[in-house]
């Protein structure tokens, strides 16, 4: 796979021979890769290459789509997430997801963040207040909204809404964050804030991010995986992918000479 022994000493997510079919169409072909904890792994590749499908397979979001067949293994902390004994709700708590389009609930800012802890049975208002404040601080949104927590989340700007969605994902204390083009609908300043968050989050979370923005992958990630037509072509340290990738296909893609 090209990753150095030392970099892969600890493994948070390990995928082996993963195949995924949408009906008769195979979307992922024999994907095997490892992702270390507390690192950012970027998934890049042209539209339809399978990177988002792969991302969604890590917390079983593809289960929600009908007619999907999956074989192979996705291990998180050595537990197969596709094992029948796995509680999918619990799994998605541990492996949170942030989408391209921010999707706050049509509720107040406070309720958006408190939603997860509440459905997990937390009713203590003081404790909820603490969680809302600390998570909004982690998502770098607290200073902007602290005086209007009762305001509708829908009234926030696009960038603020996306950070609110990040706070909502953090409120249930996940270990892994999956991000599917989290900044593609944002302006450069809002994008920079999200990228800064990703950088800071490394300390506490393992992050997998799908991005079409090559420079964003280069800026925020430690490892980059290049997908093409459902196959993993190459995964390596990001600095290697962007200076001297092993495979010609990877080089053609990152330099924009693809196709």
């Amino acid at each position: 796979m090209g990753l150095t022994e030392s970099a892969m000493h600890d493994i948070k997510i390990s995928v082996r021979d993963l195949n995924l079919y949408y009906g008769g169409k195979q979307a992922l072909r024999n994907i095997s890769l490892d992702m270390p904890p507390n690192r950012v792994t970027a998934l890049i590749g042209p539209s339809g290459c399978g990177k988002s499908t792969f991302l969604r397979s890590l917390n079983r979001m593809n289960d929600l789509i009908g007619n999907v067949k999956i074989n192979g293994k996705v291990m998180v902390d050595n537990v197969d997430v596709y094992d029948r004994k796995v509680d999918v709700v619990e799994l998605r708590k541990r492996i949170g997801m942030i989408f391209q389009k921010s999707n706050p609930f049509p509720k107040s800012i406070f309720e958006n963040v408190a939603y997860g802890p509440r459905i997990n049975g937390l009713g203590d208002r003081k404790r909820l207040d603490e969680i809302v404040e600390s998570t909004l601080k982690k998502a770098a949104l607290w200073d902007e909204v602290k005086d209007e927590l009762g305001k509708s989340a829908m009234a926030l700007s696009g960038g603020q809404q996306q950070r609110l969605c990040i706070a909502r994902a953090l409120a249930v204390d996940p270990e892994v964050l999956l991000m599917d083009e989290p900044a593609s609908a944002l302006d450069p300043i809002a994008t920079a804030k999200i990228e800064e968050l990703i950088y800071e989050f490394k300390e506490n979370y393992t992050i997998v991010i799908v991005t079409h923005n090559m420079q964003q992958a280069a800026r925020v990630s430690d490892f980059t995986a290049f997908f093409y037509m459902g196959e993993l072509i190459e995964i390596d340290e990001t600095r290697k992918i962007f200076t001297s990738p092993e495979k010609k296909q990877t080089e053609d893609y990152v330099t924009g000479r693809f196709g």
Partner: peptide, 9 residues
């Protein structure tokens, strides 16, 4: 243009 890989080299 922020070149990468062979272009950066």
């Amino acid at each position: 243009s922020q070149p990468v890989a062979v272009d950066l080299r």
